[in-house]
Design a protein around this nucleic acid. Structure first.
Length: 421
DNA sequence: TCTGGGGTCCTAGGACCC
DNA sequence: TCTGGGGTCCTAGGACCC
């Protein structure tokens, strides 16, 4: 049996943990630059605020309805996530952290010895006591069905007490008939449009389709999903220790035409990719750089291009990455456009220890040591205290974060204070 | 004025090999 | 008139996820 454990309105719940007076209040969390809404409490959802709503268009609405607004506080959410996952890991050795707020747990043979509903309730209590984060749990014989069960638990919190198990054939069919096709895990916009044209409106309808048709229209991914919903497992827990690609991309606070500004940004993105790679002990073989204009201003000339650069040898040296990223940028940059976004993505990641040495291009052996020292110093004295010449040393590039909460759990200066009266 | 960021997997088609 | 067969690797693009 698989369990899918999911934190309820995770970012909003994290903010609530340290500000209990936010209970039952509508809360929205904004993306980087305070751009758009990326998370909502139930109360905010009930007000009809859509996912992805641009914050500036809703400013008046927020005020009028007393919606509490927060900038994304990833230091807080990341730390709270780790705490939740650690507690969940107490309940089974087999766990896959699927996202910042979700985990798959595998209970091999547990159903013979445990009452799974009781077990789920114990997990819920443990996490809620240990972190203050409410969770929902779905349990079923396959991952996709566990996702379905989780939706049932979320939708009917009173009746299910936040955990639901799909075990019998009756339960499976009932749940699938209830779940709309567009809400099925793995069915996105395109697929759901195509399926509705075939008179498929629920998850149950989907399981009644012909295998060949599904395979042809949706590849093996769709076919696997169908089997999963039928109760035949095709997906197992995945090992997600190392990433296969790493990206650092940002929208700018405004538009920039100037090459030197974009060059500085791209350099910093390359440095950030280097740091992330060194953290997971990987080197990349390929670096991709892209720039684009503002897609929301269609009346202005639009331009966007990316370029991938094969590296002479796998590396995670910020210096090498910056050099190649800027070479790439020079090739794609065109004068006369107002750029709004850029990014660097590193791909073809290989483990640091097993890298193939290049025959004719010598990599600088000093870089390794230098990067280690820089990482160490930045850890010790604060992020981005050590920078490279290509990065802007005078001004620190700042994102708009007008509603940022404290780093309650990761900084001693900002730790929560408890006063007795 | 103002609209996020970071991932995964699969397929088709081209280039290449023997 | 008529030009093989069987592979691998890589990349771009599309679909999806949170």
């Amino acid at each position: 049996m698989f369990a899918l454990v999911d934190c309820n309105n995770f970012y909003a719940s994290c903010e609530r943990v340290f500000k209990p007076n936010l209970q039952r209040q509508p809360i929205c969390i904004l993306s980087n630059n305070d751009g758009c809404v990326i998370a909502r409490s139930n109360e905010a959802k009930a007000l009809g605020i859509p996912m992805g709503a641009p914050a500036f268009k809703f400013e008046k609405f927020f005020k009028a309805n007393n919606v509490r607004i927060f900038s994304s506080n990833y230091a807080l959410y990341g730390d709270m996530s780790a705490r939740v996952m650690n507690l969940l890991a107490e309940f089974t050795p087999e766990i896959e952290v699927y996202s910042i707020d979700e985990s798959f747990l595998k209970f091999t043979g547990f159903e013979q010895f445990f009452d799974l509903h009781l077990h789920a309730q114990k997990m819920k209590k443990r996490v809620e006591q240990g972190t203050g984060i409410p969770i929902s749990i779905g349990i079923a014989p396959t991952k996709a069905l566990a996702k379905v069960a989780n939706r049932v638990a979320k939708k009917f919190p009173e009746r299910t007490q936040g955990s639901y198990i799909i075990y019998t054939e009756e339960q499976r069919i009932k749940a699938l008939k209830w779940l709309k096709i567009e809400d099925v895990w793995g069915i996105g916009r395109q697929h759901s449009i195509r399926l509705q044209k075939q008179q498929v409106f629920t998850a149950y309808d989907f399981t009644k389709l012909n295998d060949h048709w599904v395979k042809k229209q949706m590849s093996v991914v769709g076919l696997r999903l169908k089997k999963e919903l039928e109760g035949k497992p095709t997906l197992d827990l995945e090992d997600v220790a190392n990433k296969k690609a790493i990206a650092t991309t940002r929208s700018f606070d405004r538009q920039y035409e100037d090459f030197s500004y974009i060059k500085e940004r791209v350099s910093s993105f390359a440095v950030s990719c280097g740091e992330k790679m060194r953290k997971q002990k990987s080197c990349c073989n390929l670096i991709y750089v892209f720039i684009k204009t503002n897609r929301f201003q269609q009346n202005k000339p639009q331009y966007g291009r990316g370029i991938s650069i094969q590296l002479p040898y796998p590396t995670n040296s910020s210096i090498d990455l910056m050099k190649h990223a800027i070479d790439g940028l020079k090739k794609i940059y065109k004068k006369g456009y107002a750029y709004k976004k850029a990014g660097v993505i590193v791909m073809g990641l290989v483990p640091e220890g097993r890298r193939q040495l290049a025959l004719f291009t010598e990599e600088n052996p000093k870089h390794d040591q230098l990067m280690k020292k820089i990482d160490e110093l930045n850890r010790k004295v604060g992020r981005y205290k050590i920078k490279f010449g290509a990065q802007d040393l005078s001004k620190t590039w700042k994102m708009k974060q007008e509603h940022l909460s404290q780093a309650y759990t990761t900084s001693l200066q900002q730790i929560i204070e408890v006063k007795s009266s």
